[in-house]
Amino acid sequence: MTAIVWQRRRAAARATWREFAARRGGLAGLIGLAVITLLALLAPLVTDVSGLDVTRATARPWQPPSAEYWLGTDHNGRSVLLLTWWGTRVSLVVGLAATVLSVLIGTVVGIAAAHFGGWASAVLMRFTDFFLVLPSMVLAIALSTVLPRGLGTIVLAIGVTAWPATARLVRAQTLAVEARPFIERAQALGGGHGHVIGRHVLPAVLPLVFVNTTLTVASAIVLESTLSFLGLGDPTRVSWGSLLHAANVHGAVSQRAWWFLVPPGLGVVCVVLAFTLCGRALETVLNPRLKGER
């Protein structure tokens, strides 16, 4: 019997993929992501980490792009190309880790708040609403200021500020699914909480969570770059945000050092745009209500 189920799922996955691939924006985003991920993975293999070390930088600082340094050098004489390349890794890792954290919290809270009802769910929802309106950046700044600097802090700060949107979405979807008569049928057949959540709610909510994840990664990466720009990032690692922080602190604007400013920012834009495009295309494919509208 399971053979039929798997056959169905494969067919459904193929159909979803075909529809997704038919959307140029989404496909472009996916290709962009693949390229960026590949570059991030290749960095230690094709480049030399020691180029990031300030003490070993030999080149003249603030050099404009040249044949030797394609994207010029920074205030310490390090290659901007190398810095940006390595920055990809931290930005991606932080963005993904923070997203996993926030989506996990959001999904659990959202389903719990919708499924169980009663005062516990009311409290949970009030709690979510409170965090939803709280400006997430202000909270993230506060958290990363009082906690010791490091990647973990940044991930935590983003993770615990970004979940309420997911929770609300999941809650709304869970409520919508649970209002459908097939839930009542499952209960009438004798199914308990575990059965209803596992067999009916989760499969219906997960596609939405997946879409939400790709969109959350986008905002998590922006948030990471912002926090690092404000100097709250891990001082021992190079990320796009920390590069821009250095650029701002050392006066790249007044030096007209556009080559130090443009690449890291463009990195953020590309990754965020790629995730957003993927997410929007997925949303249209997986959310039948939106089909043919966007």
Partner: peptide, 11 residues
Amino acid sequence: WAMPTFWLGML
């Protein structure tokens, strides 16, 4: 929307 605000400002 994908642009960090501060980066756009600096540019």
